[in-house]
Design a protein around this nucleic acid. Structure first.
Lengths: 352, 352
DNA sequence: CTGAAAGCGCTTACAG
DNA sequence: CTGAAAGCGCTTACAG
């Protein structure tokens, strides 16, 4: 068999071009950077030689010399999740347009992977990091370390309690999302509602809970803390905590769930306690992941427009690079509520 | 307002570490690279200093000096498409594991964007390029140029006619996929089937068409070239070409579509000619994109497992880097056919 | 307007 | 076992 690939030839450098048209490397560099210092005739000769030799600029070398960077690192939980994929697509589109290249990484919800990954990405000297952090208590320490090394934009989640942020933050209008979801259920006539999933020490949880209680209050209802069921927002845990909804002799007829994953877990779990989701129990989600639209019953949920959010993230991080000294930014992305008719009115249950 | 961010301090370099513990830069470098040349006591002193100063290795500088690369470029049509997102996820997982970082880019089905993007990515000196090329005749020239600069792995599509490939190729078992789809429709009793969408000059099209005709032949049927309708595989075009199915007085009762997008377009278009997809017209897709499972009627289609495919792509490209001189590889990813009950038996139509 | 020289952060023969 | 020196491909004052 013949070897088709040409021997991996040494890449063409500035020196080759300079030699090729009898000028110095400095002059070629000036031509590349469109400097007005070079005479027209010389510029054309150099440009012709660049084309002739099929020159490729070595931006890594240039970045090293100039102490600049043309890459931005993007670390997400899981690219196969359409929510993050759309976000990544928006980020990358905008960064490309601005002349940056995206360094990609997936943490798969593992703090250890996130740690290794960010470390490995930092070795490539990105100008900044866009990170959707893992939910773990130790996350905070990692974040503080990272944000001391380069500008960091946090997307979607902020771990634990922070007083003095040193990173930018892009999150959804959690308050309004939960408020809208709660109003939806209240409009169906529900009087006894739970807030299901997540931990109160997380900022998004607190904000969603605030929207929930506000809607209750406006409806003349008071918030019963026993109906705020806290657990890590995972699908299996959401199934397993279903009994707590009906503990203390309480009979909620619906739940505002922390997010879609939790709602989907709850849909599964309700059956085990003899409830039929969408028939005698109403619930809402948050995120509008694909599954929310296609599960049975379909899930009414809060829509987050991840792609636009990605563009926004890119805009924010470029802003930060242009303006390194300014105060940490916190952008709240708007949300909408999508009704999918999975929220039945309350049934005077035969469970009581 | 106080400026919280500490002044963007100069990154720590080898020189700082060397100075910090009274050795030369060379020694620090040797420690970093786990060389056995360094005395244990010295190694520990250096390691402590590395930790103390929170040193971050500058891999770009090292790559420059060593003439190596630790990045691989990945260019896809659209990351928001779950098919590509899952593929990207598989690629990135495996590359990360192997110590590489993924440089990401989206061509959005535009040759011009693909050209600009690959050029910009090459400036970052990736070790190789994984590319899902745009469908355009001029693509071939770009590809030949790219593959003369670095190892290229083509995913999913190969443009036009090529005799001597200089890139690796990863594609699906197009022949078998189309064969299975056709057999499915034949088993329902269809005798007059069309092959719908794509261009015959594309390799995947030819292979799928071959699977189609093979299945027909095995069923004792002959292929009617008038029922091979060619057009660029886009949703709108698939809607618009629907009349051609019934031209020449032909009355096909089903169609094997080039891919899911085409099938979805056809589902839309059939209504305009008084046919009801899934009722009096049967069709199959190729790819198993999300929409195929949730559209109405649900689409029976060929499943491609994009995530596993992504891992395979990463494996192939690392193989290529380890073995630059070997002949171009061509890997065919297996497929399965997913029946979703959208393929009615033929109705003796009242159209004839 | 052009060239010689120094330097970005690293690595790697080569002396000692 | 450790250090001085050269060099990866680029940029940028500084002379001329």
């Amino acid at each position: 068999m013949s070897k088709l690939r040409p021997p991996q030839r040494r890449p063409i450098t500035l020196t080759d071009i300079a030699r090729g048209c009898g000028v110095s490397r400095a002059t070629v560099s000036l031509v590349l950077r469109e400097s007005p210092l070079v005479r027209d005739e010389t510029r054309e000769r150099v440009k012709a030689e660049l084309r002739r030799q099929n020159y490729i600029y070595n931006r890594a070398a240039a970045n090293l010399r100039r102490q600049t960077s043309s890459t931005i690192a993007l670390v997400l939980n899981d690219l196969a999740n359409p929510f993050f994929a759309e976000f990544a697509s928006g980020v990358d589109d905008h960064l490309t347009q601005a002349g940056y290249v995206t360094l990609l990484g997936q943490s798969n919800e593992s703090l250890e992977r996130e740690r290794r990954l960010t470390h490995s990405l930092l070795e490539h000297a990105p100008a900044a990091l866009i990170l959707s952090p893992v939910e773990a208590p130790e996350e905070l320490a990692l974040l503080e370390q990272l944000s001391s090394q380069l500008p960091v934009l946090l997307f979607n989640r902020e771990p634990a309690e922070v007083t003095q942020r040193s990173w930018d933050l892009l999150q959804f209008d959690n308050y309004r999302g939960a408020y809208l979801a709660t109003r939806h259920l209240l409009a169906q006539g529900h009087r006894q509602l739970a807030f299901y999933g997540g931990y109160r020490h997380q900022r998004p949880h607190r904000e969603r809970l605030a929207g929930f209680t506000q809607a209750l209050q406006e409806a003349g209802l008071s918030f019963d803390p026993r109906l705020c069921i806290e657990f890590q927002p995972r699908r299996t845990l959401a199934s397993e905590h279903v009994q707590q909804l009906f503990a203390h002799g309480l009979q909620p007829t619906g739940a505002v769930c922390y997010n879609d994953i939790v709602a989907l877990g709850l849909i599964g779990g309700l059956k085990s306690v003899g409830r039929q989701p969408g028939v005698d129990f109403a619930l809402t989600g948050f995120d509008d992941i694909y599954e929310a639209g296609i599960c049975t019953p379909a899930l009414s949920t809060v829509q987050t427009r991840p792609r636009e959010c990605g563009r926004q993230a890119a805009i924010m991080i470029l802003e930060r690079l242009a303006n390194p000294g300014s105060d940490p930014a916190c952008h709240v992305s708007p949300v909408e509520f999508t009704i999918r008719d999975s929220s039945p009115p309350p049934t005077e249950s035969n469970h009581s």
